[in-house]
Simulated scan of single mutants.
Amino acid sequence: MSPAAPRGRRTRERVARGASLVGQEYDVEVGPVAHGGHCVARHEGRVIFVRHALPGELVRVRVTEGEEGSSYLRADAVRIDRASVHRVQPPCPVAVPLGCGGCDFQHATLAHQRELKAAVLQEQLSRLAGLELEVTVQPVAGDLPVQDEGLRWRTRMQYERAADGGRGLRRHRSHDVVPIEDCPIAHPDAREPGQGSGAVTEVVAAAGQERAFEVAADGFWQVHPGAPRVLVETVLELLAPQPGESVLDLYAGVGLFAGFLAPRVAPGRVEVVEGDRTATSYAERNLAGTGARVHTDRVDRWLARRRRDDPDGHVDLVVLDPPRAGAKRAVVAPVAGLRPRAIAYVACDPAALARDVGTFAAEGFELAGLRAFDLFPMTHHVECVALLTKTDSDLR
Score class of each variant (00 low, 15 high):
A118R: 12
L110W: 03
P90T: 04
L116Q: 13
A95R: 00
E132D: 15
E134F: 02
A141Q: 13
I80C: 13
P91M: 06
Q138N: 07
A111E: 15
Q147A: 07
Q147R: 15
Q122S: 14
L125S: 10
P145K: 07
E132M: 05
S84K: 12
P145A: 10
A119V: 07
Q138K: 08
I80E: 01
Q147D: 06
H107W: 06
L133E: 13
S84M: 09
A119N: 04
I80H: 12
G101E: 06
V120E: 09
Q138M: 14
Q113W: 04
V120F: 10
Q113F: 03
L131R: 14
L133D: 07
E149K: 11
Q106S: 12
S84L: 08
H107E: 01
A129C: 07
V85F: 00
Q113V: 12
G150R: 13
A83F: 01
V94Y: 08
P90W: 06
C100W: 06
G142L: 09
S126Y: 06
E123T: 14
E123P: 02
T109M: 09
L98M: 07
C92H: 07
V146L: 08
E123L: 03
H112W: 13
L116V: 11
H112C: 03
L98W: 13
D81H: 14
R127V: 06
E132S: 15
G102H: 04
V140R: 04
Q122W: 00
V140P: 09
G142Q: 04
Q122H: 01
G99F: 11
L121D: 01
T155H: 02
K117G: 03
E115K: 11
L151I: 09
D104T: 02
C100K: 09
C100Q: 08
Q113Y: 05
T136G: 00
L116F: 04
K117R: 10
G101V: 11
D81P: 00
Q89D: 12
L128S: 08
R152V: 05
E132V: 15
T136S: 10
Q89G: 01
P145F: 12
L133G: 02
A83R: 11
Q89L: 12
L98D: 14
C103K: 07
T109N: 05
V96Y: 00
D81I: 06
K117V: 13
V146Q: 12
H112S: 02
H86S: 08
A83S: 14
V146H: 01
G150F: 09
F105R: 04
L131Y: 06
D143Y: 04
V96L: 03
K117M: 12
L144Y: 05
L116H: 03
L131A: 07
I80W: 09
D148Y: 00
D81R: 15
V135Y: 08
R152Y: 02
A118L: 10
V135L: 12
A141P: 00
R87L: 06
L121P: 03
D148R: 15
F105H: 13
P93W: 03
G99V: 06
C103V: 10
V85M: 11
L116M: 15
Q122N: 00
Q113C: 14
E123S: 14
P90A: 08
S84F: 11
C92E: 04
E149R: 14
R127C: 05
L133N: 02
C103D: 09
L128F: 13
G102N: 10
A129D: 04
T155M: 15
P139W: 02
T136L: 07
L144I: 05
R152M: 04
A111L: 13
D81L: 15
A95S: 15
P90M: 05
E134D: 13
P93I: 06
